[in-house]
C-alpha cells in the first residue's frame, strides 16, 4: 500500500497538492506549522493509489511517498 508522508514544516500551505490529487484525499489542517502556514495532510490514506501526482506538484518538496507492496505505474516520468 502506498503511504504519503507530508513534512509539515516544509509545507507553505499553497493547496496545489489538494488540487492535484485525483482521489481528493488531501486537505489543509486548521493548525499552523513552524512558518505559520496551514499545512496539508492526508485524511484518507487507504484510498491513496500511489500516483505521486501530489508530490510532483508540490513546489516545496514537502511530500515523500513510500510503498510496501507493488504499486501500479500510471504514467512514465
Amino acid at each position: 500500500m502506498p503511504r504519503v508522508i507530508i513534512e509539515k514544516d516544509r509545507c507553505k500551505g499553497c493547496e496545489l497538492c489538494v488540487r492535484a490529487c485525483p482521489q481528493q484525499i488531501l486537505r489543509m489542517t486548521r493548525e499552523i506549522n513552524v512558518k505559520g502556514y496551514f499545512f496539508a495532510e492526508v485524511f484518507d490514506q487507504p484510498r491513496c493509489i500511489g500516483c505521486t501526482l501530489c508530490a510532483l506538484t508540490c513546489p516545496d518538496m514537502a511530500i515523500t511517498i513510500g510503498a510496501n507492496s507493488v504499486v501500479y505505474r500510471f504514467f512514465e516520468v
Partner: peptide, 16 residues
C-alpha cells in the same frame, strides 16, 4: 518501505 517518490540528490535540503 520502499520510497517511490523522494527528493532528487541534485537538490539540497534547503527550504526555498
Amino acid at each position: 518501505m520502499e520510497l517511490i517518490f523522494k527528493k532528487p540528490e541534485s537538490l539540497t535540503d534547503t527550504i526555498t
